[in-house]
Amino acid sequence: MSSPPVLRIERLRKTYGDRTVLRDLDLTVEAHDVVCLIGASGSGKSTLLRCIDLLEPTQDGTIWFEGQDVSDPRVDARAVRKRIGVVFQAYNLFPHLTVLDNVMLAPRKVHGLSADQARARATELLEQFGLADKADAHPDRLSGGQQQRAAVVRALATSPSLLLLDEVTAALDPLLVGEVLEILRRLAEQGTTMVLATHEMGFARDVATKVCFLDDGCVLEEGSPAAMFSAPREQRTRQFLRRIL
């Protein structure tokens, strides 16, 4: 293990006004890790993901991304975000653009690819994820599952070194959850480094390399999925798992 972890977070603190949402949070993500953040609604999963992508200012603690301290106010946040892909729970795609244009936007405008290069890359990815026939459709013509798959493809188009996924199946019809989890599974097999907030415990058990239980703004317990699901140490973790499983 010579290369630094992709992501290392130490004693992260995030407050909204006088409300502390993340407190002394530690998290390490190695290359090819699939880290599942689990925890009750309101425990701070979304906030953590937003802080990692520098979409929110933090109040204390340090985030290292690929060895660089990105908590430093002099860091160019855009340069960091260029190397991180994000998929939110819903409303990801830009409704006025076709699926292809959605996928091509960042490679062209942010990474400076030519239209032809961007189109070639986007078309290849859309094909790979079974969306080739939707390339010229607008998002409102897609099912919820197709929309989220397209959002994943868009996040992958710039070859990020870390993929953040915030409950990407939570807003979906149960019948459509499977197709989205399926492509995440494939990404995991290909070695994509991911951090995902999820309530899909079956997926976490199968795919995660590490499961972190967030409780009241900090990682109360973490471990391999086998350990976390069969023998959680903390009382609160046991309570949560009993309620959700």
Partner: peptide
């Protein structure tokens, strides 16, 4: 607002 968040997350500048 999530449209702006998505664009920012993709690395687009405010003007873009």
């Amino acid at each position: 607002p999530s449209q702006v968040a998505s664009a920012t997350a993709l690395g687009l500048s405010n003007a873009q």
